[in-house]
């Protein structure tokens, strides 16, 4: 079959698809998922993962309010914020929250014996994967973006006019934009990974820990291997570099510099590839609750 035939077939297939129906089904799936499973008191642990640093920064602001707040302190606090985002959020907070949110999307329904309802409606299983993934992404992104935003606000608000000029007249706003972008990318990147793991394994916790190990030690491997980690792409988008010293150095990544747009596209490509794998895996899934 020639390339032209393939293109013609793909165009014919695309024309035949009920895209509007898919769109409305995805929006209903996202809405139902948010309403039922995600913004509930049962998810208190995830909220804590997102908001613990905010509480710590708030405590710091309250207790250190009488200390001098000059430009040197701003530099220090900027590095502290970079540490919070890069060492806590990317390596722990978002990682474990995404593990909890995204593995529960399908595995949770298997445990609660309700997944068959999703399989008995006229919805393609790929649409189901996309709908659930988007719902999980919305929750993770909203939670962690607001938390990062709150940390940023608290960190610089105590500096008064100096802080204001650092944010609006200096590099502050750009750094905030980068952090928000990286947080969103981390949520979808880790989200896709854990969604796929939940379709591959009955208990995705153990492979989740393996993934964490891989994300940590990948720094010692060549660049092509590092490209199979989420943190590889995030690192290149972080606006403030962290020093490579002390025990926390194991959480940092050493890699050849990559332009930001390549990092964003690379992570999106990785996410799409993993989602495609999830779409393949969902077709193999059977409802056998007794085996759970």
């Amino acid at each position: 079959m020639s390339a032209q035939d393939l293109v013609a077939r793909a165009q014919k297939w695309a024309k035949e698809q009920p895209w509007r129906l898919y769109g409305s089904q995805i929006s209903i799936l996202v809405r139902n998922e948010l309403r039922r499973n995600l913004f509930t008191h049962r998810r208190i642990g995830i909220y804590l993962l997102a908001w613990v640093p905010v509480l710590i920064v708030l405590t710091h602001v309250i207790f250190d309010r009488n200390q001098p707040a000059g430009p040197a302190q701003i530099e220090t606090d900027t590095r502290v914020l970079a540490g919070i985002v890069q060492l806590y959020y990317f390596r722990l907070g978002i990682f474990f929250a995404c593990m909890a949110i995204f593995t529960w999307l399908f595995r949770g329904e298997m445990v609660e014996r309700t997944l068959h309802y999703q399989f008995l409606v006229p919805v393609r299983r790929e649409v189901l994967v996309v709908g659930k993934f988007l719902a999980g992404s919305v929750v993770a992104i909203v939670l962690f973006e607001t938390a990062v935003l709150a940390c940023f606000y608290l960190m610089y608000s105590r500096f008064g006019s100096t802080g204001k000029s650092y944010v609006f007249g200096g590099p502050g706003l750009g750094q905030l934009g980068s952090y928000l972008l990286v947080t969103a990318l981390a949520c979808i990147g880790y989200g896709a990974v854990f969604l796929a793991l939940s379709l591959l394994f009955k208990n995705p916790i153990v492979p989740g820990v393996v993934i964490m190990g891989w994300e940590t030690i990948a720094a010692i491997f060549p660049d092509w291997a590092q490209m199979l980690t989420v943190t590889f792409y995030l690192k290149h988008l972080c606006p403030v570099s962290l020093p490579l010293s002390g025990p926390l150095a194991i959480f940092t990544i050493v890699a050849e510099p990559v332009p930001p747009f390549v990092a964003v596209l690379g992570l999106l490509l990785l996410t799409i590839t993993i989602l495609a794998l999830s779409c393949f895996l969902i077709h193999r899934m059977e409802i056998t609750y007794t085996a759970e």
Binding site: Q25, N32, R36, T114, L120, V121, P122
Partner: peptide
């Protein structure tokens, strides 16, 4: 239409929602 034997339901759902939302997914 399949009425299974699994006696489990989505958490917090009402009888109405249990029927209404799948119909929305039908289009």
């Amino acid at each position: 239409g399949y009425c299974t034997q699994f006696d489990s339901f989505p958490t917090g759902t009402t009888g109405y929602d249990f029927i209404y939302w799948p119909l929305r997914l039908h289009g």
